[in-house]
């Protein structure tokens, strides 16, 4: 910075000959830090546009989202992810208490609007899932059908809301609710069905023996 410029950035409080209704103005320079920061924000802007829009390392917000989704899936489901949707997947989910608990969380997010907390049911909206009778299913696998396709206007399909893993977890939770007989449960509706997993070959001792 030359001496001349330095002089220019000093506050002298020299009055200009301006006078507006008694208001006068000083000929003071704009503070140099003001210029510096203003310039800094401009440089930042150019830098930001180049890095975020024009450089090869740029990832779109959709790519970032996809990466987060993948990481979250792996964290949540691990090996469960690799089992195709079906009874086997539910059985696998039931082996792990944490997965059933996750099923309960999903249930809380998506299902309590009609089935109420703990699956006790709401008259006219959702069935009691804690008793021993069922209206729309006969096997655990049927729960997946109900989730996927819904039931007429009574229950919406969850295909857009839940992925395969989440469906299996909710189904596992619903399986676990059977016969827990919620004290505030609404009256049962439907017909008795055989115990879950009773007709498929499993490694369970009961059917394996």
């Amino acid at each position: 910075m030359s001496a001349e410029q330095k002089k220019d950035s000093i506050v002298h409080d020299d009055l200009l000959d301006h006078n507006y209704d008694g208001i006068q103005e000083y000929d003071n320079p704009t503070p140099s830090w003001w210029h510096m920061i203003f310039l800094g924000t401009m440089l930042f802007s150019v830098f930001y546009i180049v890095v975020m829009h024009l450089s090869p390392i740029t990832r779109t917000r959709y790519e970032v989202l996809a990466q987060h989704q993948e990481a979250a899936l792996e964290k949540q489901f691990g090996e469960l992810r690799r089992i195709p949707l079906g009874e086997e997947k539910i059985r696998k989910a039931l082996e792990n208490e944490q997965w059933v608990a996750m099923g309960a969380t999903i249930f809380e997010e998506r299902c309590v609007l009609c089935h109420a907390e703990g699956g006790r049911g709401i008259q006219g909206l959702g069935l009691n899932l804690t008793d021993d009778v069922y209206k729309n299913i006969e096997t655990a696998g049927d729960i997946l059908n109900v989730l996927t396709n819904g039931i007429g206007t009574a229950m919406p399909s969850q295909r857009a809301n839940l992925d395969d893993n989440e469906m299996a977890l909710v189904a596992a939770y619903v399986v676990s609710l059977r016969n827990t007989n919620h004290p505030q449960g609404i009256p049962p509706e439907g017909k008795p069905i055989p115990p879950f997993f009773s007709d498929t070959p499993t490694e369970q001792p009961a059917s394996g023996g």
Binding site: D21, I23, Q24, E25, Y26, D27, N28, P29, T30, W34
Partner: peptide
Amino acid sequence: PKAAERPVFSYKL
């Protein structure tokens, strides 16, 4: 500036 009865700090600014 009216209330403070002081000149405005900087016309350039």
